[in-house]
Computed example of a mutant assay.
Amino acid sequence: MTAIGIYGSRGRMGQAIAAELAGLGARHAGGTDAKDDPAPLAQAADVLVDFSSPAALEAHLAAARASRTPIVIGTTGLSSAHHALIDEAAAEIAVLQTGNTSLGVTLMAQLVREAAARLDSDWDIEIVEMHHRHKVDAPSGTALLLGAAAADGRGTTLAETSVYDRAGVTGARSEGTIGFASLRGGSVIGDHSVVLAGEGERIELVHRADSRAIFARGAVRAALWLAKQAPGRYAMAEVLGL
Rank of each mutant, 00 (worst) to 15 (best):
H134N: 11
V169T: 15
G190W: 05
I178C: 04
D191E: 15
I178G: 02
N100C: 14
L111H: 11
R202W: 01
A213Y: 01
A151I: 05
L205W: 03
L183I: 15
T98Q: 02
R208A: 10
A148N: 11
E204F: 00
V163H: 00
I127R: 00
A216K: 02
A213M: 06
E199R: 14
H82Q: 08
A213Q: 13
E204Y: 04
H192R: 02
I93G: 05
E114I: 10
H83R: 15
R202D: 08
A81G: 09
A89T: 06
A117C: 07
A149Y: 09
G186Y: 01
A219P: 03
G179Q: 12
I214L: 10
A167P: 02
Q110L: 09
R166H: 10
A213H: 13
H131F: 06
V95R: 04
A89P: 04
S211I: 02
A116F: 02
I125L: 07
I189Q: 13
A116T: 15
I86F: 10
T161S: 15
S182C: 00
A94P: 09
I127L: 12
H207K: 08
A159G: 10
T101N: 07
V136G: 04
A172D: 15
E175L: 12
G99M: 07
S140Y: 07
A159M: 08
E201S: 13
L103Q: 05
I93C: 00
T98R: 02
G179N: 13
S211N: 13
I93S: 01
E175P: 12
T157F: 00
A197T: 15
D124K: 11
M108L: 15
V206P: 04
